Amino acid sequence: MNQKEIKNPWTTLSGEEKYENRWIQVTEYQVLNPSGGKGIYGKVHFRNKAIGVIPVDHEGNTWLVGQFRYTLNEFQWEIPEGGAPLSEDPLDAAKRELQEETGITAKKWTRIARLHTSNSVTDEEGFLFLAEDLEYGVNNLEETEADLKVWKLPLQEAIDMVMRGEITDSLSVIGLLTLGRLKKI
């Protein structure tokens, strides 16, 4: 079935911006739901797209980055990732994020996934890349990443961490499991 041919069953009556900063815009909509009932719907619009990178060397190792995530109030391991302006090419952003967080550059790039991070409340779009044929240099951390930890480990161990619930970031989970499936790990 062609998804573009399916008619939107929701009716938007009005919308009001409730909050805005340089990263997000929150809008509350008055709606009629698919059954015709009145309700509200909140939408978080991201001003950036989500970018994630899984670097893999010739020995099957990858790199995770760890940092304290303010929204969760806990330390998290995840793949190198970040945001890119909506107008920026996702691959260019992936190259920048990998170098910024790990110091790694890659000669071979493969896009492994396009996704929406939480389509029930946001329109954020994400892109995941595999980076191979790696070269190593010095990272260039942003101000918010001053405490960033970088960890080299076997790709299989990172996938096992997902399966044990030790990695919960959506880009990391989707990226690592997708790559595991593609590489038949």
Rank of each mutant, 00 (worst) to 15 (best):
L98H: 09
I104V: 09
L72I: 10
E88M: 13
D92T: 13
L98W: 10
A84R: 00
E100D: 15
Q99H: 15
A94L: 02
P80A: 01
R96V: 05
G83R: 11
E100N: 13
S87T: 13
N73Q: 15
A84I: 01
E100T: 05
G82H: 03
D89L: 06
L86Y: 07
I79H: 09
E78P: 03
E74N: 09
I104Y: 02
E88F: 00
D89N: 15
K95G: 05
A94G: 01
E101D: 01
A106M: 00
L86I: 11
E100V: 05
P90S: 11
E88W: 12
A84K: 04
E81W: 04
L91D: 10
L86K: 14
L72R: 13
A93I: 10
I79C: 05
F75M: 03
Q76T: 12
L86S: 02
E78W: 00
N73V: 05
T105G: 00
T71W: 13
D92Q: 14
L91C: 07
R96H: 02
K95M: 05
D92G: 10
D92Y: 09
Y70S: 12
G82I: 01
G82F: 03
D92V: 12
Y70C: 03
L98N: 04
Q76E: 14
I104L: 14
G82T: 02
Q76C: 08
P85G: 09
N73E: 15
P85R: 10
A94H: 07
P80R: 01
Q99R: 13
L86T: 10
L86N: 08
A106Y: 04
L86R: 09
E74C: 08
R96W: 06
L98D: 03
G103W: 01
P90D: 11
I104K: 08
Y70G: 04
E97W: 14
L98I: 08
I104G: 06
A106Q: 04
P80C: 04
D89K: 10
S87A: 10
S87R: 07
K95I: 01
I79F: 07
F75H: 06
A93F: 06
G83I: 05
A94Q: 06
E74H: 12
P80T: 06
W77F: 14
L72G: 02
D89V: 07
W77M: 10
I104R: 06
E78G: 08
N73C: 08
A84Y: 02
Q76I: 11
L91M: 13
Y70E: 15
E78V: 01
D92N: 14
Q99C: 00
E101K: 14
L72H: 12
P80H: 03
A94C: 02
Q76W: 04
L72W: 11
S87D: 14
W77G: 06
A93D: 11
K95W: 07
Y70N: 12
Y70L: 14
R96T: 09
E97R: 14
E74S: 13
A106I: 04
A93S: 15
E101M: 03
L98S: 07
L91F: 00
P85Q: 10
K95A: 03
K95L: 05
P85W: 09
D92A: 15
L72C: 06
G83D: 07
A93Y: 10
K95H: 02
N73Y: 05
P85I: 01
N73K: 14
E101C: 04
E81G: 15
K95Y: 02
R96Y: 03
K95N: 01
L98M: 09
E88P: 05
D89G: 00
N73W: 08
E97K: 13
E74Y: 00
E81S: 15
